[in-house]
Write a protein that binds this DNA or RNA. Structure first.
Lengths: 166, 166
DNA sequence: ATTTTAAGTCAGTGTTGTTGACATTACTAG
DNA sequence: CTAGTAATGTCAACAACACTGACTTAAAAT
């Protein structure tokens, strides 16, 4: 019934194995990626959603709610719950737009910046260690593959974010 | 007050920017990574947790509950809820251990294998596209950095999984 | 003047995680 | 053999974070 595997079949098998390894690597690595900030957030009344909001407000100060909604890819009800607590706790400031008064522009307060720093320092420390362990060529490949994995519109947003800071 | 930036300072700034890009790339790419299986699961009464369970049972057939708990990194109560529905729905079979009768060995039924195939095909298609877009050297770097990001014990598990299938 | 847009809110629901407590069964060590 | 420990499963309660759907307010656009 089954013939001996051809060279091409073996190559394909190898490629499938690489895919599977990559999938599992993503799973385990993402756990590490979020572990350190999660530990900091666990003590407070905040979670990963707060981290993401604070990160992108810091990244693009003055961004509007709609903008943030697109970046985060959640519903406005979901974001609003997070945003409300951050504003109540004095970590985020919401200013009425000048050009368009319907819009709210979001900024981190000093306390908000302090939290953002604490969270991203923890995350960056791990990232820095991984980068220096793997070396610069590996890092380039890492980013290339990640970009290729993104949905089209998310890739657009990712690139837009990088462009804005010259 | 502030002196002109030295060459070293500029290099550091550049490195920090790379870190930030990598962090955001992980965020956006992980969304793409889970998007396709999530779409399939949305129609059923299942979620991402079911996908993970099914994936690793397929990966290591006959694995025990404790084993799976370690791999997934959740509480037994959390896993049990997922596992119970999968067993009730006839996707997973739980066999009493022969050597140690306290243990339950987990297997996918034919229906379970069908679901696993559907989910991992969707995920692998995206991965395959990303791999061929980025090229083999990029893929090697991708995996290197991901491994360097993992927690020590997760890296051990990741490597153990790859070894078992020769 | 009507429609659309940006933002916020209320209520309900579902998945996935957590603690803590407890029961059953079976292996292990004394 | 008995006591302790280990593997599994379960009940209850709770929290974070996502969703849908419906609705309001204010301001901009047509």
């Amino acid at each position: 019934m089954s013939d001996a595997p051809t060279g091409e079949m073996l190559m394909r098998q190898d490629a499938e194995e690489h895919l599977r390894k990559g999938i599992e690597a993503m799973f385990f690595a993402y756990r590490g990626f979020t572990a350190d900030p999660d530990r900091i957030l666990a003590d407070m009344a905040y979670g990963r959603a707060h981290h993401r909001a604070v990160h992108f407000i810091n990244r693009a100060p003055g961004t509007t709610v709609n903008n943030l909604l697109e970046i985060l890819g959640v519903t406005k009800q979901s974001l609003n719950r997070v945003l409300r607590t951050l504003i109540e706790d004095g970590l985020v400031e919401s200013r009425v737009g000048t050009a368009d008064k319907r819009e709210r522009h979001l900024f981190l307060t000093e306390a908000g910046q302090a939290l953002e720093q604490a969270l991203s320092n923890a995350q960056r420390d791990r990232m820095r260690a991984a980068y220096s362990a793997a070396g610069p060529e590996a890092v380039a490949g890492f980013c290339q593959v990640l970009e290729a994995m993104m949905d089209h519109d998310l890739l657009r947003m990712y690139r837009l974010l990088s462009e804005t800071d010259k």
